[in-house]
Design a protein around this nucleic acid. Sequence first.
DNA 1: ATGGCATAATTGTTATGA
Length: 254
Amino acid sequence: MILASWNVNSIRARQERLAAWLDKVRPDVACLQELKVVDEAFPHASLEALGYHAATFGQKTYNGVAVLSRTKITRTIRGLGDDDPQARFLAVDVDKLHVLCAYVPNGQEVGSDKWAYKLAWMERLRAFLDAHYSPEDRLVLCGDFNVARDDLDVARPDDWVGSVLCHDDARQRFQAILDWGLVDVFRRQHPGGGLYSWWDYRMLGFPRNHGLRIDYVLATESVAKKCVAAKIDRDERKGEKPSDHAPVVVEFVA
DNA sequence: ATGGCATAATTGTTATGA
């Protein structure tokens, strides 16, 4: 089974690239973030034509998450179960797997209101896991976490010391999510680091490979132990009109 | 200290991202 996570940075701007990529990779499940579109304008028809069911939790202009699946989606939970108006979380069941798709807030600047919201949001995500699932479940939590876990996940760590992507307080919230009972399956496959999922559009970030790994596939151990391959599809950061994020693609055996 | 690039709201400029 192939599972992917990709922050597309507008599904409408990325529609052609997304379709070509789905056709090439044929993931069984794909978690998408930053749709920047309301549910009514989500491109269901073109994705159906490619063989995908879709669950969406969209929003005008900002945020928005979706899960695509080649098999039927049997349950959908939109949001973390509170009155937060930002569309950043979607959980579905597909086959015998819980699939959770998250777009963690960026936080803008340490000390800002958005920063406080980011930390609180990550705590709410951990609480949601506690309330709804067991670490014994077959579960994956994928998405853009807007946190580089370790300096191994940062090309130029000195540039990012204390920033919203690398701050200890954010890393602690991330670790609390892992400590619930999740494995960073990409890290397990590539313990040496030095592989990135996001590069700034500016300052020749991608040609210089000044990247960070902030997109993740996390899995409970029963799923993680079936992982046979994990990669970041750097080719998707090349060419015309790329997202600033590349997809993370993970393969599991039966 | 700032912008640098991209997107979506709109058509000149702002909010946001990471």
